[in-house]
């Protein structure tokens, strides 16, 4: 790759002030960032890369005061293998485990995973071939084009790309709070397809920690992709059910992780079985609208809701 400047931040402040300097990007695991730079998909080439892995303690995982605290640079592998997370926050462990490939998980971080850019193939085509609306251009090429992997819940800002994160729906379902260098953000409010980003983060703001209250009941994560490894989800779903409440979040079906509120209402307080889960799945995809090539995703989303719920049994 072409030259850029680089710093190893030692503190959060050092990182954010470097980012405030303009045209700088954060690097954590690198597994999304370096691909985007190398294939030159974005309009701008970064002048500086800010490594935040060097901030002491930013990769810690601990449980404190009935709450799981995961540092932004904890790797997906560490999360997937952590016994506490596996037993009490199963949806997160399963989501981390199903992300990409073992190599990516060994380097990729939770912070990076929730901040990654979308995988729309128009957006990702080499050398910014399609200067689409998410990059500040004026149209969405997928809307009328090849959209088999795109949104089934409409467009945001005329873009039908989907959020590809596996851990994001788990964090929403587990009612996580995302702590940044500036503020605390509820997972529900964290994603917003600002142009060109994926989150509500300011340019000089970084995720520092994710906090998850211990769930009352069980949680689960399921994923559908063409291959069991390497692939991004076609649809995934996380559910957390307990105390008569249900929290269910789909992803890869919309620009942002999609809270399946109708499915939550349908299953809350119900006995979990094949029939109730099936009904909740059907409820969850009410209002879904197909594009030219993605009708099948509605059926798969319905199935993913059902299976995530059954996973909480």
């Amino acid at each position: 790759m072409k030259h850029f400047d680089h710093i190893n931040a030692k503190t959060v402040e050092e990182a954010t002030s470097a980012l405030a300097g303009g045209n700088a990007v954060v690097n954590a695991g690198g597994t999304d960032l370096l691909g985007t730079i190398r294939t030159a998909i974005l309009r701008d080439y970064p002048e500086m890369v800010v490594n935040i892995k060097t901030i002491p303690g930013i990769d810690e995982i601990k449980e404190e005061g009935g709450m799981l605290k995961v540092g932004a640079c904890a790797t997906l592998e560490e999360i997937a293998k952590n016994e506490t997370i596996k037993s009490k926050y199963a949806a997160l462990a399963q989501a981390a485990y199903r992300t990409a490939s073992p190599h990516i998980r060994a380097a990729g971080t939770i912070g990076g995973n929730i901040c990654q850019l979308n995988r729309c193939w128009y957006f990702r085509k080499y050398d910014n071939r399609f200067d689409c609306i998410r990059k500040g251009g004026n149209m969405c090429y997928a809307m009328a084009g090849e959209n088999r992997y795109h949104s089934i819940f409409g467009a945001v800002k005329a873009c039908v790309a989907v959020n590809p994160s596996d851990t994001a729906p788990a964090l929403v379902a587990l009612n996580a709070t995302i702590k940044t260098s500036k503020r605390d953000i509820a997972a529900d409010d964290f994603w917003d397809v600002a142009i060109p980003g994926s989150t509500v983060l300011d340019d000089d703001e970084i995720v520092t920690e994710i906090q998850i209250p211990e769930p009352a009941g069980k949680s689960a994560f399921v994923k559908f992709a063409l291959r069991a490894t390497i692939d991004f989800p076609i649809v995934n779903c996380a559910a957390s059910i307990g105390n008569g409440e249900a929290s269910i979040c789909l992803n890869a079906v919309h620009n942002n992780p999609y809270r399946a509120t109708k499915a939550e209402e349908a299953i809350a307080g119900q006995t979990i079985d094949e029939a109730s889960a099936d009904a909740a799945g059907a409820a969850g995809v009410q209002g879904a609208t197909k594009l030219a090539h993605n009708n099948y995703k509605i059926q798969i989303a319905k199935t993913m809701i059902k299976r995530a719920i059954l996973g909480c049994k």
Binding site: W121, Y122, R129, E146, L226, D231
Partner: peptide, 18 residues
């Protein structure tokens, strides 16, 4: 997989070509 409007191949990489 091609874009019907431009004829550009959309999956010329080993993530999307499986």
């Amino acid at each position: 997989i091609y874009d019907p409007a431009t004829g550009v191949k959309l999956n010329d990489n080993l993530i999307e070509y499986k």
